[in-house]
Amino acid sequence: MGMPLQAPMEISFDYTRSLGPVLGPFMTALAERRILGSRGSDGRVHAPAIEYDPVTFEPLTELVEVASTGTVLSWSWMPDPFDGQPLDRPFAWALILLDGADTPMLHAVDAGSPENISTGMRVQARWAAARTGSIRDIECFAEPGEPDEPGERVEPVTMVTTPIRLRYQHSASPQESAYLRALAEGRLVAQRCPACTKVYLPPRGACPTCGVPTEEEVELTGTATVTTFCIVNVPFPGQRTKPPYVYASIVVDGTDIPMLHLILGCPADEVRMGMRVEAVWKPQEQWGMSPENIDHFRPADEPDAPFESYAHHL
């Protein structure tokens, strides 16, 4: 059967976060090179400002400015930074108790090497050159230097944008891999569940009614019946076909389950429930290990299937 197929996958989105009455002023202050804490129900100052007290759960509304200098309470060393971390060279993560605060914050310290950092060390925020009202406005902490010049006042910050990009190695199941390898050879191959004998396209790592993998391969010709459909008139992100077009639930002959596919080759308003269709493959040079090798289905020159023949697939 061969090894299961794998391929890289990236997910990426710039999240837009609204800040509200506590984090908004906190981020605004950062853009002005100032750090705000919030006073907890017990009178302690927490910097960065937090929205709710961890003991009383009361909203914390009193904001208090603290210093941008502080003391390292604990640290760890990051020899090989990950994407997105504050520094792209080795650095320390540290819990830093800012002067004027009662509880520490987590941030990076640009220490160069682990020999240059210790608990009790004094540090000062190093501000990013361009500040937008984000925790990243503090580039990192470092040995204290000149006192900060207060930054210019900015318009209140109400939103922050946070890009999140993650990479994964995606794996296909053994059954799906066999199906994909057949597709790369121009063959459409389903598998039968050994328990209920239903034929699944694509094949399954577990038959969803029996909980066992599908096994016996069933070669298909690619003719099919439209069971039901919709006409897509709306554009949306990632769309590959210009609307209007038909997106249909079809049952490929020899299988026992509908799949969703595109119907082209006739005006959208001529597609019918029960219409017979056939697979249209992309040109062979475009084939890969992909279900997209079948570009779409088109009307077959056959009479419509009677309703009773596909009603149990609706």
């Binding site: 994909l180 039901t228 459909f229 897509v232 997106y247 969703l260 429930m273």
Partner: peptide
């Protein structure tokens, strides 16, 4: 989000349910 080896979503949110309403 369209993982590798799968068909891209062809119809958007309502497109999944619309065929069942027709049915």
């Amino acid at each position: 989000i369209n993982p590798p080896f799968t068909m891209p979503l062809g119809a958007g949110a309502g497109g999944y349910f619309a065929p069942h309403m027709r049915a």
